[in-house]
Write a protein that binds this DNA or RNA. Structure first.
Lengths: 205, 205
DNA sequence: CGTCTAGTTGAATTCCGTCAAAGCGGGTGG
DNA sequence: CCACCCGCTTTGACGGAATTCAACTAGACG
C-alpha cells in the first residue's frame, strides 16, 4: 500500500524540513512530535500559520511550491514520501484522495477560524483562545481521554507570540496577569495548568 | 454529468446564503457575482475569512456544519447542489474529487498567506497588499488580459475593514493618505486606480 | 429640496509594541 | 558543589499606531 513508497525518518528539534518558496520535494505524515509552518517577511517578522501534530499531513501535493517553511519544534518522527510518487499513488487511489480532501477541508476551517482570532481579537482573548485550543489538541495524545487542565506546551513564549500575532512581551504579560487573576498556574516555563476554565472561555470571546 | 443534479439560482446583493453554524444544506459553484464568508463574534465583531469569485466553490462537502456564513456582496448567480447528492456524486467521481482537492489546497495556501497579513502587517501594509491582490483577482474577469491598474471593488469601506482586520476609519484614512501621496486615485466610492504600482508593492512588504 | 446612507475627518484614548534592564534556570566546567 | 554563563522570560517605562467617539460631508434618490 502507501507504506511501500514511504520511509520513516527522524528529525531533531529546530531542524527545518522545508523552506518557504522551494519546490516542495516531499509529502509527509507526522508520526510523533510537533512542527510549525511559518510565513516570514523580508524584515524578519514571522507568523506561524499552522501547528502540525501527530497524524497530520505536511507538504503540498500536486506540484506547487511550498508557500511556507516547516520546522520541527520538538524531536519528531515522520513518514516521508517522494512527492511525485505520492501524487501518482494518490491519483490512482480515490479513497486516499477523499481522506486527504476531508483533512484539507478541516484544516481550511481551522485556518479561517484562526483568521478571526488574528484580525479581531485582543491580546487577552488571543491568549485565552490559544490555551483552550491547545488543551484540546494536546489532550488527544495524553493517556486519559477528555480535555485536561494541565499540559505541557511544545513551544516557548516567542513561538506563542508568533502564533497569535503578538510580541513576546505582550504574551508574557498576559500570561502573568492570568496567573495573578487565578485563571492559570505556570509551574514551569512550558507547563500550563488551567484553574478556571469557565473564566478562560468567557475571556476567549 | 454534474450539471444534472444542480440547478441555477440567482441571489440578490446582501442576501445570506448560509448561516454560521448551520448544517450546510448545499454546495454551490459561483457563476457570477461576489460573495463573502464571515465569522462573527458574539459582540458583533466580524472578520471576512474569504471572498468568493466566479468559478470558486462554496459550501462544506462531507457532512460538517458550515463554520461561517456566506453572503452575496453583489447580485450573484450560482449553480446549487443538494449536499447529499453532491457528496455521493463526488464519491463516485475521483476526477471531480481531485479537482476539488486542488482547489481546497489552493484556498488553504491563500488563507495561510492571509494569516500573515492579519497577524503581522501594519494598516498601510494591509491596505497595499489588499489593493494589489484585488487588482489581480478582479483582472481575471475583465475584458483584457493582464493585471489592470483601474478596477471597481465589489465592496464598501466597512467590508474592506472586515477583510483586513481594521476599523472603517483606519481604512478610510489610509486610502486618503495613499491618494494624497500619489499612489492611488479614487474617482468614486468603489473605483480604485493604481498610479504607482511599484511604490504600492514596496509598501505591501 | 430634504433625507438617508456611506464615507471622511478630527481629537482623545488605549492597547500594544519598542527599547532596555533585570531575573531565572539549566547546563558546564572548574 | 558552586560559580559562571547563556538563552529565555519577565518586568518597567515610554511612545506610537490604531481604535473610539463624535461631528461633519458627499452623493444618491425620492
Amino acid at each position: 500500500m502507501l507504506g511501500k513508497i514511504g520511509r520513516r525518518q527522524k528529525i531533531k528539534a529546530g531542524h527545518v524540513l522545508m523552506w518557504e518558496g522551494d519546490e516542495a520535494p516531499v509529502v509527509a505524515n507526522v508520526l510523533d512530535g510537533v512542527l510549525k509552518m511559518v510565513v516570514s517577511a523580508a524584515d524578519g517578522r514571522e507568523q506561524i500559520v499552522g501547528v502540525v501534530f501527530p497524524s497530520d499531513f505536511i507538504g503540498r501535493p500536486f506540484g506547487k511550491e511550498t508557500p511556507y517553511s516547516v520546522t520541527a519544534m520538538t524531536d519528531a518522527e515522520m513518514c516521508i514520501f517522494n512527492r511525485k510518487a505520492f501524487d501518482e499513488f494518490a491519483s490512482s487511489h480515490p479513497d486516499l484522495q477523499q481522506k486527504l480532501l476531508r483533512r484539507t477541508l478541516d484544516e481550511l476551517d481551522r485556518a479561517r477560524h484562526w483568521m478571526m482570532l488574528l484580525g479581531r481579537k485582543t491580546a487577552s482573548e488571543k491568549i485565552a483562545s490559544f490555551l483552550l485550543e491547545m488543551s484540546e489538541r494536546l489532550s488527544g495524545q495524553g493517556c486519559e481521554a477528555g480535555v485536561r487542565a494541565s499540559f505541557e506546551l511544545p513551544f516557548g513564549r516567542q513561538q506563542i507570540a508568533d502564533i497569535l500575532g503578538l510580541t513576546i512581551e505582550t504574551t508574557s504579560r498576559q500570561l502573568t496577569k492570568m496567573r495573578a487573576d487565578g485563571l492559570l498556574d505556570l509551574p514551569s516555563r512550558r507547563e500550563i495548568v488551567i484553574q478556571d476554565r469557565n473564566a478562560l472561555e468567557l475571556l476567549a470571546g
